[in-house]
Design a protein around this nucleic acid. Structure first.
Length: 421
RNA sequence: GGAGAGAUGGCAGAGUGGUCGAAUGCACUGGUCUUGAAAACCAGCGUACAGCAAUGUACCGGGGGUUCGAAUCCCUCUCUCUCCGCCA
């Protein structure tokens, strides 16, 4: 969430930039600042009252010690009156704070000035297209056919034991999945990221810290009995490692493999066919905590890192800069990676690399001390490196041959086989 | 699931109604000493909000209560630990 002192100083700029996200902030920011002014005044009045009570209390103690009971009792009565008054102010203060909080969580992060205006994914800006689309044989198939033909994934079995969107990997399919996880983690740790294996359930405070709550509650599976949420991405547990932390050394680089759980009940049809959209999927995530001055440099590094993985996997991909309409609530700038999946002739999103600037850090109270010893908010960044199912789909679709599915070189030492026949 | 104990500053750990935002130790920062370092000594060292500042206010797991006054008493919630049971 945005920091009120920052809003005060940059109100017009924020209103302008939020137009890129198609969010009209003018009214809501005015309302916010009026409430905050009122909050300040209330605090001043309240502080004065409380200060008086504190003074009187000290005096009463001394009067009792010196035996001046009558004087002490007089003061007590005065205190009672002040307390009445302070109760009222306290109520007012609490309700103002709540109003302010409620407004703050409704305001999305301010987009980076370079974010293109737009309403949907059609308006995203293509930055780079890399690799060659493969020429497939005449009878090439989409992955949902291949996974059945080669006995790699059993969607029906998943339906039986859980439901739609929960595939069961088996045989070489399971092994390929495991190989991808290991390969991604190795790539990331070689780039200086520390590997973590976090819990797959988080508490409410964590879901709030990264911005899933309160507005995206419906997208998460909620274990109501223990009030825990199944993580929609490793970003949630990993970023929350640093909740209430004052960072000493930058950058902090973490990577984690986790399954990800998403309810997102919605569309049907070929967009969600096979591995394209699932309720449970595997993902390897990278997270960085960085000094504000370096966060955009870091974002570029992360983008290059993800690109290098796709290069090694020999998958054709393109990089898009998300437009305002497609940018997530918490992100200031996001680059999406899409791989070309030849069997279904589609571009599939496999990674989203974002700079959240201080938006999450404010909620998380994730800070550092600047040169003058003042505490400031860090910047947080994350990206997928990478999301598994669509990589899996693109790999088997693009590499299908008459002989079978060929495994890219970099993966062979992880799979232990070169071809799936 | 049963029984008990506990939650205090970066860490350890005192504090059971007033002078406590909180002893002490460690860590950290600055200084003295030293060729340099260590040791020793001196000083500083939590967060947030308000204020130009002086300073004020709040915070001792969360919430509520008693009291003129709460880290300290009461209620409640959460979490952690120990023992027993069960168990990968």
């Amino acid at each position: 969430m945005l920091h009120i002192p920052y809003i005060r100083e940059h109100k017009n700029e924020i209103v302008q930039l939020l137009q890129i996200k198609n969010f009209d902030a003018a009214t809501i920011l005015d309302e916010l600042l009026i409430k905050d002014d009122s909050r300040k005044n209330t605090q001043k009045d309240l502080d004065n009252l409380l200060s008086k009570v504190n003074q009187f209390s000290k005096q009463i103690g001394e009067l009792y010690k010196s035996g001046e009971v009558q004087k002490a009792n007089d003061l007590k009565e005065e205190c009672a009156a002040i307390k009445q008054e302070s109760k009222v102010l306290q109520g007012k203060y609490a309700s103002l704070e709540k109003d302010i909080q409620d407004i703050l969580v409704q305001i999305p992060n301010v987009p980076h000035p370079s974010v293109p205006k737009g309403s949907c994914d059609k308006d995203n800006k293509l930055l780079k297209e890399s690799g060659k689309k493969p020429k497939l044989m005449a009878n090439a198939k989409p992955h949902w056919q291949l996974t059945t033909d080669y006995n790699l994934i059993d969607f029906e079995l998943g339906n039986k034991i859980t439901g739609a969107g929960f595939p069961v990997y088996k045989g070489k399919g399971a092994r390929l999945q495991r190989a991808l996880i290991s390969y991604f983690l190795d790539k990331n740790t070689n780039a200086g990221y520390t590997e973590y294996l976090p819990p797959h359930l988080v508490n409410e405070a964590s879901a709030f810290g990264t911005g899933q709550l309160p507005d995206k509650e419906g997208q998460m599976y909620h274990v109501t009995e223990d009030n825990l949420y199944l993580i929609p991405t490793a970003e949630v547990p990993v970023t929350n490692f640093f909740r209430d932390v004052i960072v000493k050394d930058f950058p902090i680089k973490c990577t984690a493999y986790t399954p990800c759980f998403r309810r997102e009940a919605g569309s049907y049809g070929k967009d969600v066919r096979g591995l394209n959209r699932l309720h449970q999927f595997d993902k390897v995530e990278i997270v960085q905590i960085q000094h504000p001055e370096k966060s955009y440099e870091t974002l570029d590094n992360m983008v290059n890192h993800v690109a290098s993985i796709l290069d090694e996997l020999e998958l054709p991909y393109r990089i898009l800069k998300l437009c305002g309409g497609d940018l997530s609530f918490t992100s200031a700038l996001t680059f999406d990676f899409e791989v070309y999946s030849a069997g279904q002739d589609k571009w599939l999103e496999v990674s989203s690399v974002s700079n959240f600037e201080s938006y999450q850090a404010n909620r998380l109270k994730l800070r550092y001390k600047d040169k003058n010893g003042k505490t400031k908010f860090c910047h947080t960044l994350n990206g997928s490196a990478l999301a598994l199912p669509r990589i899996f789909a693109a790999l088997i679709e693009n590499n299908q041959t008459e002989k079978g599915i060929e495994i890219p070189k970099v993966l062979q030492k992880y799979t232990g086989f070169e071809i799936i026949e």
